[in-house]
Design a binder for these strands. Sequence first.
DNA 1: GGATTGACCGGAA
DNA 2: GTTCCGGCCAATC
Length: 118
Amino acid sequence: MGRQRKPDETQVGLPSEFAEQVLDLVSLIPAGRVMTYGQVADHLGSAAARAVGTTMARYGSSVPWHRVVRSDGQLPAGHEVEALARHRREGTAMRPDGVRVDLDRARWLGPTQSDGSP
DNA sequence: GGATTGACCGGAA
DNA sequence: GTTCCGGCCAATC
């Protein structure tokens, strides 16, 4: 009763509305598909991918953040190894270099699209 | 309250 | 193909 929500009740803290939308959208990304930070921001009505990255860095611990990559297919800075290991395990389309994702084949347009595979 | 940072983006050199 | 700069918004100090 009198006890209020503790900071560790769920995750790192208290996700704001924007952060909650990011986590929700990212959690909808199917395996083998990826979205760019800009796409996520666009679906939320924002245009700042930086805000998504900042939020993901704090609250992304509970979502498949490795499915969110940069506009060039580069994996999230500071977690490239972690994301790469997961992508190889999920069979995500990777480039010949093996360090970037092939957005042309793995890009997911959003929850409104079925697969987006041409 | 303000100022800085950050898992970024797009264009230009 | 790579490298550099300014700008965007949210979270943090």
